[in-house]
Simulated assay, not measured.
Amino acid sequence: MKRTLIALVAAIAPALASAAVTVKGSDTMVILAQRWAEEYMKQNSAKRVQVTGGGSGVGIAALINGTTDIANASRAMKDAEKAKVRERYNILPTETAVAKDGVAIYVNAANPVQQLTIEQLEKIYAGDVTNWEDVGGSDAPIVLYSRENSSGTYVFFKENVLKGADYAPSAQTLPGTAAVVNAVAKEKNGIGYGGAAYAKGVKEVKVVGPDGQGYTPSAENVASGKYPLSRPLFMYTRGKPSGEAKEFIDFCLSPAGQKIVTQVGYFPVK
């Protein structure tokens, strides 16, 4: 009997160990979420957190169809998406802001342009301005890089810069912020956008705020709201967070979790 019990425990132990909180979505947040998960599991050896990217839309779709516990999103859920959660589970999703971000505008390190207005960015990404000379740069064609339409950053930029209009057909869509940064770093006439934490090997152009001053997405400028492309980063759950999902989200919001936010290059909510 004792041997049978030991064998049973040995058989189910791997299954218990593999049970994990699943976190899926925003590519902007994936490095941050992975760092959170690593530290959380280090402090709680019996816990498991599985993090994958794919974009905010992918994470929200997974939340709706029940294949993730937490959806990471760099944009707010749409009313239609919330309605699908309610229709399927008879409960509304809960939104938890876990960090802040400034959507940075990347140009090649050799580009002489120092700042751009929202209007200039709108015209660039709509395809109405196609030469850097028209916005204070060299006489050279502007090469546009964008995120794919499942990206929350794509949606945020479309709503807040393009005012809901379509991107120029010439905009090259890339699967992740790291890919956008890499492309801009290699293309001297390139421009792209994405999370401030990814701006390595490229130049961040200042964005002009309502006061007429240009601002970078620094901690101070994002916290004060002076940087005009600031945004919260969210975790979504079906209903109020509970169980191990709540424990993980609580860790993300704890002083230790918010310290990781700063270390990664984003900005704390607390």
Rank of each mutant, 00 (worst) to 15 (best):
P141R: 09
L162H: 04
A20G: 12
V107H: 02
K47C: 11
A33W: 07
S56A: 01
R3A: 14
I249H: 11
S74R: 01
C252H: 04
D139Q: 11
N108L: 01
S254N: 03
S45Y: 12
A15T: 11
W132N: 11
I70W: 10
K188A: 05
K246P: 11
V155Q: 14
A62T: 06
E204M: 13
L162V: 13
S254F: 06
Y215V: 00
I142E: 00
Q50W: 05
E39N: 14
G66P: 04
A62H: 11
M1F: 12
A199D: 06
G66K: 12
L116M: 09
V161M: 01
N90G: 15
P14L: 03
Q263W: 02
E244H: 08
D211E: 06
I12F: 13
L121C: 01
V9N: 14
K82E: 14
G239E: 03
C252A: 14
P228H: 08
A11F: 14
R238P: 05
E95P: 00
Y198A: 13
A223F: 00
G152E: 02
S151M: 01
W36Q: 13
Q34I: 07
E38L: 12
A76N: 13
L162D: 03
R48K: 14
D166E: 15
F251C: 09
P255W: 06
I249Q: 13
K82R: 12
T153D: 00
I60R: 07
I91T: 14
A80W: 15
I118Y: 02
A80V: 15
Y198V: 15
T28V: 03
A165V: 03
F267E: 10
